[in-house]
């Protein structure tokens, strides 16, 4: 077989019909934005603010997408994000005394980021263990841990917002590498890594197989428990990265930041082509869905007469519409 590299890629592209559809929607939304609010939309300030907003919930969408991919869900992701930043925040305040040199403060900030990621790993492992070790349905297990992580967050912050971090924190997270904001770099690197894992590695393939039929994976000799725990650990790390971004952006952390993100992240993941029944999906689709949602969201902001709560109507309606659309497309494909 003499398949050239390009033709192979073309084949991948046409095979992923959902990605093509998303890409068309992406272009259509972009054109709509330009047409409706051209001057406001196509301006550097708007792009800057869009770019600042999406990484935090984009990472959560990828995290929840992974949980959906293995046929489960992660309702605790947002609270993993908050708890990891709260613990990292307490760590940073504890070690960053007055009068530390600039360099030491930066080192401490990075150390606290590391703490956040470790918390993400532990929290994800707990989720994974509850699901696979005890057989608790993912929805209930992550509901329980949602309450738990949220609760610990409340206890550690006294229920209010925690601040008073070194100013360097904000400058690290809100800074840029070249002209690319740090948050976008984090988002991109995370998505590339997870995207490769999902589509190119043994682990990613196994996740999809598990998501389709976890009885058959047992009969094929796969280690289901390891698989579920690993998936949730990755989701936990993504959530903690999101937590770091929110922490730096607001220079404060709270136990209940971004509560609305759970719903939004599920919408994005499903819209991005992750099957709510498990077993299907990829990261590039989710990323495209993140960008679409961000554009729609920014566009809505430009209409002063649309209350922000209407966004919920759109998100909910869109989720159902996308699911029904995919269902119709799928059942047509099945008939062939």
């Amino acid at each position: 077989m003499n398949k050239g590299k390009t033709s192979f890629n073309m084949k991948m592209f046409t095979r992923d019909a959902n990605f093509v559809r998303l890409f068309i929607v992406f272009i259509a939304v972009f054109i709509a934005c330009c047409a409706l609010k051209g001057s406001q939309f196509l301006n550097a300030g708007n792009f800057e603010s869009m770019v600042k907003q999406f990484p935090e919930y984009g990472l959560l969408a990828v995290a929840i997408g992974l949980a959906l991919l293995i046929g489960g869900i992660d309702l605790s992701a947002v609270y993993i994000a908050n708890l990891s930043s709260i613990i990292a925040g307490r760590f940073l305040i504890a070690i960053a005394g007055e009068g530390a040199s600039e360099g030491t403060v930066y080192a401490m900030i990075f150390a606290s980021f590391l703490v956040a990621v470790v918390i993400g790993i532990l929290a994800g492992a707990l989720n994974g263990y509850l699901i696979s070790g005890f057989g608790i349905p993912a929805m209930l297990a992550t509901l329980g841990t949602q309450s738990l992580f949220w609760g610990f967050g409340v206890v550690l912050t006294g229920g209010s917002s925690m601040s008073g971090f070194p100013t360097q924190l904000a400058s690290v997270v809100n800074g840029s590498i070249g002209f690319i904001p740090v948050t976008v770099v984090i988002f991109t690197v995370a998505c590339v890594v997870v995207g490769l894992i999902v589509s190119r590695t043994v682990l990613g393939r196994q996740m999809k197989m598990y998501g389709t039929n976890n009885k058959a994976t047992t009969y094929a000799g796969l280690n289901n428990m390891k698989l579920v725990i690993t998936t949730h650990v990755i989701a936990g790390v993504l959530a903690s990265l999101s937590g770091i971004i929110m922490w730096g952006r607001y220079s404060s952390c709270r136990a209940d930041n971004g509560s609305a993100y759970t719903m939004q992240a599920i919408l994005i993941a499903v819209m991005g082509g992750v099957s709510p029944n498990g077993g299907k999906g990829n990261v590039q689709g989710v990323v495209l869905a993140v960008l679409i949602i961000q554009m729609v969201s920014s566009l809505l902001n430009m209409f002063n007469n649309i209350p922000s709560a209407c966004r919920q109507i759109i998100w909910g309606g869109l989720l159902l519409a996308v699911m029904i659309f995919n269902y119709v497309v799928d059942s047509r494909a099945k008939r062939h």
């Binding site: 719903m263 599920i266 966004r311 919920q312 909910g316 989720l319 159902l320």
Partner: peptide
């Protein structure tokens, strides 16, 4: 679960918005 999370967002949006 996902359907009712979606409609939940819809209904709350109607109420709040």
């Amino acid at each position: 679960m996902i359907v009712t999370l979606g409609t939940s967002s819809l209904f709350l949006g109607i109420m709040q918005g």
